[in-house]
């Protein structure tokens, strides 16, 4: 039974895997319940920075009870996390959110599309979509500073796009699909909003489902504060106003269900 809790965990290891991108393994009891597309909230030691940072789960090692997070340094909170070494105590809250609907991949040709810091959750997903007919990972980066591409390639072919064209197709993940003439029956995606909008439009044109993972400024992470909402097509079940909570109703939505 999955239960949300806050606990003091320990950093098992951390290394920088690209400029500003850090790869941290955490020893935590939360590893057992983690599902692809869920996230944890990570607290800073700096008490002037109150709110936890929501970070997607990259993969879970249930044998050793470890969670892997791969994150970009974006401010003083993540800068503090990047200084952590093995053994550092780290307060986390989780596991949060619903994750990706895995059953939608069954027997289907699947795209896993990640852009930038939206790539990490695709690793746990690539490990989990075992019932798919085929899986293609399409990963978009800024430049040749790739990360996680090798990890992902253990589970599925990885097609790379870079904004500067230094590796793979020049452009974004959509350009890679076109250039390599890839086809799918269902899409899972995480990345910047412009990328998610393009994927939504592409999926609608093709008449295939797309499940997209969203982010927004959050406070509580558990559905109480109503800070992190997204406009929805249908009336949401909590407030009945077409504003769903990304932390608890998401972060993954069917693309046609949200107004992004």
């Amino acid at each position: 039974m999955e239960q949300k809790k806050k606990e003091t965990a320990r950093v098992y290891s951390q290394r920088q895997i690209a400029p500003g991108i850090y790869d941290m393994w955490i020893d935590t009891t939360l590893a057992q319940q983690a599902r692809p597309g869920q996230f944890i909230s990570v607290y800073t030691q700096d008490k002037s920075a109150l709110l936890p940072r929501p970070i997607s789960i990259c993969e879970a090692d249930t044998t050793n009870g470890r969670l892997r997070i791969v994150y970009r340094v974006a401010g003083k909170g993540t800068e503090e996390f990047s200084s952590y070494r093995e053994g550092q105590r780290i307060d986390i809250l989780g596991t949060l959110g619903n994750g990706f609907p895995l059953e939608a991949a069954s027997g289907k040709r699947v795209f896993l599309m990640g852009g930038g810091i939206g790539i990490p959750p695709m690793l746990a997903l690539a490990q989990a979509v075992t019932g798919a007919a085929s899986v293609d990972v399409i990963a978009g980066y800024r430049d040749r500073a790739l990360f996680l591409a090798e990890d992902l390639s253990k589970y599925a072919p990885v097609h790379i796009a870079t904004e500067d064209g230094s590796v793979g197709t020049k452009g974004n993940v959509m350009n890679a699909i076109e250039a390599e003439k890839l086809e799918a029956d269902v899409i899972y995606a995480c990345g910047p909003m412009p990328m998610l909008r393009v994927i939504r439009d592409y999926a609608a044109k093709k008449g295939i489902p797309a499940y997209i993972s969203l982010e927004e400024r959050m406070a509580c992470g558990v559905g109480a504060c109503l800070g992190c909402v997204v406009k929805t097509r249908a009336v949401d079940h909590h407030s009945h106003v077409k504003n769903a909570r990304i932390c608890t109703d998401g972060p993954v939505y069917a693309a046609e269900d949200v107004d992004i």
């Binding site: 002037s48 400024r217 406070a219 504060c225 997204v230 407030s239 009945h240």
Partner: peptide
């Protein structure tokens, strides 16, 4: 009646605190 509240971003961290502008989203 239900209130839809304000557009996002609705929350921001500040030194030792936070700002919110949820706009009283509620189901009525």
């Amino acid at each position: 009646v239900p209130w839809e509240g304000n557009p996002t971003p609705r929350v921001q961290e500040t030194y030792g605190g936070m700002l919110n502008a949820i706009g009283l989203q509620n189901p009525g």
